Simulated assay, not measured.
Amino acid sequence: MSKPPAEAFCAPVPGRTAAEVTVLAGSAAVLLRLAGISVPVIGVGLLTGPIGPEGAGLVFIVCVAVLVSAAAVHLVRRSPVARV
């Protein structure tokens, strides 16, 4: 199966060239990645003052465990069950 040309993805954006759209999409992806990395770091840093580094680490671990559990539940409910 051949890949569609880049113009097919850029056609709905009036007044923009393919390179401009690619740069904009790449910039947005970088900003989302930076936000995804910085939010937990800033949160742990803010919690370190009032509850200490051990408490901040525990809060971070609990938050990650809740997010992973929610993702697992979502994937289990979404996946089709193989019936024999």
Rank of each mutant, 00 (worst) to 15 (best):
A8G: 01
A11D: 10
F9P: 00
V21Q: 04
L24P: 00
F9G: 03
C10I: 10
T17F: 07
V30S: 08
A35N: 06
L46G: 07
V23N: 03
L31R: 07
A25V: 10
P14S: 03
P40C: 07
T22L: 08
V21M: 11
R33E: 05
T22W: 04
I42T: 10
V13T: 12
V41P: 08
L34D: 00
V41L: 09
E7C: 05
I42L: 13
I37L: 11
A25Q: 05
A19Q: 11
I37A: 12
A6D: 15
T22V: 05
R33F: 15
V41M: 15
R33L: 07
G36N: 01
T22C: 08
G15F: 04
L34E: 01
V21N: 03
L31P: 00
L32K: 08
L32W: 09
L31W: 08
G15N: 06
G43M: 13
L47D: 04
A8Y: 02
A6M: 14
L47R: 09
V44G: 08
C10F: 04
V44M: 08
A25E: 12
S38V: 06
G26R: 11
A18Y: 01
L46P: 01
C10N: 05
L32A: 14
S38D: 07
E7S: 15
S27C: 12
A18F: 02
A29I: 06
A6C: 04
A25K: 15
L47F: 14
E7D: 06
A29Q: 15
G26P: 01
L46A: 11
E7R: 14
R16D: 09
A19T: 04
V39T: 10
A18H: 02
P40H: 14
V30F: 06
A19L: 11
A25W: 13
S38N: 09
A6V: 12
V44C: 09
L24W: 05
R33S: 06
T17A: 12
E20L: 04
V41I: 15
G15E: 03
A8E: 07
G15L: 05
R16I: 08
L34G: 01
A6H: 04
A29L: 15
A35D: 03
L24G: 05
A29W: 14
A19I: 04
